[in-house]
Simulated scan of single mutants.
Amino acid sequence: MILKIKRDERGLATIEMAFALPILLLFIYGIFQVGMIMAASAGMQHALGEGARLATIYPTPTDTAIKTQINNKLFGAYVGKFTVADPVADPTGKSYKDLSVTYTVTPNYLFFTAPDITLVRSKRVYLSF
Rank of each mutant, 00 (worst) to 15 (best):
T14Q: 05
A52K: 01
L127P: 11
G49D: 05
D86A: 12
K123H: 06
Q69R: 13
L99R: 05
G80A: 08
L127D: 14
D63P: 01
I66F: 07
Y103G: 04
T106H: 13
G49A: 01
T102P: 00
F112A: 12
T14H: 07
R10D: 12
K4W: 00
L119I: 03
K94H: 05
K97W: 01
D86N: 14
K123S: 07
L3H: 07
S95N: 13
P115S: 14
F32A: 09
G51F: 00
V79I: 15
G11T: 07
F27K: 13
L110P: 00
K6L: 14
A89Y: 13
Y78V: 05
R7Y: 10
A39R: 04
K97A: 00
L3D: 07
F112E: 03
E9M: 12
T56W: 12
V34Y: 09
I70K: 05
D116N: 11
Y109A: 03
K73F: 10
S95P: 06
K94V: 04
A77G: 02
T60G: 11
Q45S: 11
I2L: 12
T83H: 04
A13T: 11
R121P: 01
S41K: 14
V105S: 05
G51K: 01
E50Y: 11
K73S: 11
T83E: 14
M17E: 02
S128E: 11
Y103K: 12
A42T: 15
L48H: 09
M1R: 05
G76R: 08
S100A: 08
D86V: 06
L74E: 03
N71G: 00
D90R: 11
F32H: 09
T118A: 03
F75Q: 15
R7W: 08
F129G: 00
T68S: 05
L48S: 07
A114I: 03
A85K: 06
G49L: 00
A42S: 13
V84Y: 10
H46L: 02
V120F: 05
T68H: 01
Y109K: 01
H46P: 01
H46G: 00
G93Q: 07
Q33G: 00
Y96K: 08
I37V: 08
G51R: 00
V84S: 11
L25P: 08
Q69S: 00
T14R: 04
K97D: 00
I28L: 14
M17R: 09
A89P: 10
V34M: 10
D98R: 10
L99Y: 01
R124V: 05
A13V: 13
